[in-house]
Design a protein around this nucleic acid. Structure first.
Lengths: 228, 228
DNA sequence: ACCTGAACACCGTTCAAGT
DNA sequence: ACCTGAACACCGTTCAAGT
């Protein structure tokens, strides 16, 4: 799992002395650094991102990176912002419910496709305006659902927190509950008499089913407020 | 923030040669190691837990710890399990709704009181049977609410994921939105015409209010299923 | 302005040695 | 069985030096 992969090709920094940009175009840019860091994380996870390794990918010594970022933290923040910007935002068309669900499923799609990048994006503190397209889309849908402003804000936060937690849980726990799942359950000394069937499902969860069912549960609560 | 605190007193390992336990009682136990690690994290955060530092607290060299744990990961897992065990589980009395809310507020209370420990407990993968008391209490309440088993399981997972995400968000973001909050909002080029009031709340959230309102939103959805 | 080499102060962990 | 000392292979980062 730690073997070198194709992503690590040490692109020797070409002097590219063409008459492009005077001399500033020749050196590293923050964008290049950020994108290289994202590719590294995408392929091998956050643990693979070290200053020396990132420098190697860019054909430069580790210390050169400090000309463009104050420290490693700042690079990770930039990666998180970049990842955030790449999250899909479905169009503002259709029923509010399908718009919200489309938004959530799009985010989960990215989580499942790029778990390492998603983890970084969700784990780090990103300037709130980076999420503005998502916020606007969600609030607009909740407004169309007939919710007053305060309820819109609560609905957004609740759905956002749920989606984030579900996705992190799913990509972290993936493939863990293979068979050891029922062990804790059968040994249970706690009283589960009334709830044995439900407990079995809790110990062997179906992420696909849970994601949508949990989302529907939350949205159902909104429907109630709306109808009042 | 990294200054030495009172917790770090280097307790010189007393030979305690009394007629207590034969000779096994003289050496370190996994419990001692785990508890010392928890105290260190409680006071100074996960970043302060290094093998050398932990050894110092226990009056021993770092390498001695490897006689009781295979590696640092295992120590952190033990801390997470210990923290999990210390989470409050309210009695199975009263209306299902107040029981669920009591459970959730108890967890949030620990998150706010011991954020560093809570973060470790929530971040690491803990054997599911460690949460069994909480699972049993929650499922029992949802059963009393009249939910069928599948809905009990979904309700549990949804509430669990929401509470976890809210608490991690709250302890991470605490004190961040002091004034820079409205900046991203006022600069917004995205269309927020219909949702300006809600957006303002999103950018300056009230954690207390959000926690309970989000929880109520989810539980309201349950009420609907029940009444069907 | 941008990059390099050497060095510093750390890590977790291995290993051989002590009792 | 349990602990120690020295060492290894890493980290992020500082600093003086090169161009």
């Amino acid at each position: 799992m730690n073997e070198p992969t194709g992503v690590t090709q040490k692109r020797i920094r070409t002097p590219r002395k063409g008459p492009g940009r005077p001399a500033a175009g020749e050196s590293l840019t923050p964008q290049e650094v950020t994108e290289a860091a994202l590719r590294l994380i995408l392929a091998e996870g956050e643990g693979a991102l070290t200053m020396r390794r990132l420098g190697e990918v860019l054909g430069v010594r580790a210390m050169a990176l400090y000309n463009h970022f104050p420290n490693k933290e700042a690079i990770l923040d930039a990666v998180a912002s970049l990842a955030f910007a790449s999250m899909p935002v479905p169009p503002d068309k259709g029923h509010w419910r399908t718009r919200i669900k489309g938004l959530c499923f799009g985010i989960r799609g990215m989580a499942l496709q790029q778990p390492n990048v998603f983890r970084v994006a969700m784990t780090r503190r990103v300037p709130p305006e980076k999420a503005l397209p998502h916020i606007a889309a969600a609030l607009s849908a909740f407004a169309d659902a007939g919710l007053p402003p305060a309820a819109q804000a609560v609905a957004y936060q609740t759905v956002r927190l749920y989606v984030r937690a579900h996705c992190l849980w799913e990509i972290e726990e993936l493939g863990v509950h293979r068979d050891g799942a029922s062990a804790g359950f059968t040994h249970a000394t706690t009283d589960l008499s009334k709830t044995a069937a439900a407990a079995k499902m809790v110990f062997a969860p179906d992420p696909d089913r849970q994601f949508e069912a949990g989302l529907d549960l939350i949205l159902r609560g909104l429907q109630v407020s709306k109808e009042r």
